[in-house]
Nucleic acid binder design. Sequence first.
DNA 1: ATAGTTGGTTCCCATTTGGAACTTATAGTC
DNA 2: GACTATAAGTTCCAAATGGGAACCAACTAT
Lengths: 157, 157
Amino acid sequence: MRWQDIDQQPCSLARTLAIIGDNWTLLVLRDCFMGVRRFDDFQQRLGVTRHVLSDRLRKLTEGGVLDKVAYQERPLRHEYRLTAMGKELYPVIVHLAQWGDKHLAGEHGAPLIRYHRQCGEPLEAQLQCSHCGDTVKPTDIRVEENPYWAGQILVNS
Amino acid sequence: MRWQDIDQQPCSLARTLAIIGDNWTLLVLRDCFMGVRRFDDFQQRLGVTRHVLSDRLRKLTEGGVLDKVAYQERPLRHEYRLTAMGKELYPVIVHLAQWGDKHLAGEHGAPLIRYHRQCGEPLEAQLQCSHCGDTVKPTDIRVEENPYWAGQILVNS
DNA sequence: ATAGTTGGTTCCCATTTGGAACTTATAGTC
DNA sequence: GACTATAAGTTCCAAATGGGAACCAACTAT
């Protein structure tokens, strides 16, 4: 199977990765959450080649994660902004960064610290069930198949 | 900059993606959390080519996310298990899948439903600050630079 | 008239991927 | 003893993708 066909999988994670799972794309999103909006700013910060950046921004826009809006006419110039849908990827970015902070930081510590404004403390993100408010561990989850795709997703349980 | 040099960046997210940010790798991890451990099982479920799978499993093992352990001698056979460090990526997987469930599911709905055993309800994961217990939105976060890398990460604020 | 800015596209070459066949070591069956 | 199956890869080739650099278009500023 080719990577470009994974958006045809029923799995929600596969479909998500069809939009944001490419090399460089999650780093583009990191910069979006840092307030970067313009092509050349992305390009300089990431060091990615221009045609790859162009392709990734197009895929994110087509996928509904970014919105390409004109910020001036004459000459026409566009910038890329997170949509509401895109902003919902924030937990993914935070957990990825936090995992790196914890396991991959060198002797100088994490390069960025995220403070929770409301309590003033460095953010320690956890997986929380919004229904009961409890913190969730992998073993706390029971997975059930949607009968429509019975047998196509789960191999074991 | 080449993608393979991304692990030299100070950014924790970039370092994380150097291990798990490749195409296919997050799908390998999805299967790990579903209990898949063996090479041929990964290969058949993902449809990825065998040498790419071999490469990704090696990178995950070198990165400390998976552990390659022999499950039999004669003939020697190995399987891949999540390490404690690997299991901490569970929130990333859950949030990615949940985002796909919400925004990319077709008419038949999400293919898998995750139930929280403790409360019995379908899991709705949220970003939570473990210090104060509040739910966290992107605007609730204030980012500060570690002075050691001053100016190298943040462009604006 | 010339240089600079912004947001790309085009070109070439090297690396990576997809697909399939092959390998190694062993167990089980005819 | 010969054949087949299993598991976990490795090797091969053609096609697709990526890195690096140059180029282009439509302006603005000096």
